[in-house]
């Protein structure tokens, strides 16, 4: 019996990660490769943004992976010689407005599809999902007509009202999944306690769905922030452009790429998203991995 116990405890040790060299080969090396591949573009962006033009265009004299005399010239140029602050402002406005609009609509849609179970609710859910499958590169043509006819062309509203076309289906599906994880008995109990449907949504379901709402919000914000094709098609004047479109159309003059300014623009443009993520990363992870804890 003791022998059996010993061999039983010894066997997992052989298989475990205790051996150091095994750990290095199986865990740290792949992890390092992964990190390197993921982070290198960001490093390149950062390095380029602070490099003087002399170093930037002369790899023979200068190490391409390092900066010898860092400069803020590109950032100054971006902030004071271009409309970058206004692009940033427009992007921020559009992303936040589109996110809130989409979250509001998706919450109501997801709740009614998941909980009210009206006749045909499944088909409505399916239809919303199918709408998500229509690629924006097809959808922007009819949308352009509507935008022009409504007199919204070249205004931030053109984007605030079109981004929900892909955000609402996405958020609705994410929230349907999250609402599903909230025990239905809570709502039945609230129903007996005397709450109306709207009171249940506001006082029971939404407070419990906050992690889900936050991750839907993060997704929406990021997707809106990075969106390209609608912003390119529906906005014409320089000051109304969003960051992704503007740096490509305004910082590439003819066939000259202003790499320093381009990268500085990308760096500043990705900071808000990164900061946004860092605040909510816990909620974000919990909404993807766990459900409501009672």
């Amino acid at each position: 019996m003791t022998e059996a116990t010993n061999s039983a405890t010894a066997a997992p040790e052989m298989l475990s990660w205790d051996s150091k060299s095994r750990r290095v080969v199986m865990l740290y090396v792949p992890l390092a490769c992964f990190l390197l591949i993921l982070l290198f573009p960001f490093y390149w962006m950062g390095v380029t943004a602070f490099k003087p033009n002399a170093e930037l265009y002369d790899f023979a004299q200068h190490n391409p992976f390092w900066i010898t005399s860092p400069t803020l010239d590109h950032i100054k140029h971006l902030l004071f010689n271009t409309s970058y602050p206004s692009w940033l402002w427009t992007t921020m406005l559009v992303s936040i407005a589109a996110t809130f609009l989409s979250l509001f609509a998706s919450t109501l849609a997801a709740y009614s599809i998941q909980r009210l179970r009206f006749r045909g609710s499944q088909y409505v859910g399916l239809a919303i999902y199918l709408a998500y499958l229509v690629p924006p590169s097809i959808l922007f043509i009819p949308l352009a007509t509507m935008v022009v006819q409504l007199g919204l062309f070249d205004t931030p509203f053109a984007l605030i009202l079109t981004y929900p076309t892909f955000l609402v289906p996405f958020c609705t599906w994410l929230l349907i999944g999250y609402f599903k994880s909230i025990p239905y008995e809570l709502e039945e109990c609230a129903l007996i306690d005397g709450a109306s449907r709207l009171q249940i949504l506001r006082q029971i379901t939404l407070p419990l769905a906050i992690p889900g709402l936050i991750s839907a919000g993060i997704f929406s914000f990021t997707l809106s922030w990075n969106e390209f094709i609608y912003a390119l098609a529906f906005i014409q004047s320089s000051e109304n452009k969003t960051v992704p479109v503007a740096i490509l159309t305004e910082l590439v003059t003819g066939d000259v790429y202003q790499w320093g300014a381009l990268m500085a623009g990308s760096l500043l443009g990705s900071l808000p998203v990164a900061i946004f993520y860092s605040f909510f990363v816990d909620y974000y992870v919990s909404s993807l991995t766990g459900a409501v804890k009672e």
Binding site: P183, E185, L186, E188, C189, A190, I192, I204, P207, L208, V292, K293, E294
Partner: peptide, 12 residues
């Protein structure tokens, strides 16, 4: 008033 099997207490 009803008492449910999993108690249905509001967790928040």
């Amino acid at each position: 008033a009803m008492v449910f099997q999993n108690y249905a207490l509001y967790p928040h």
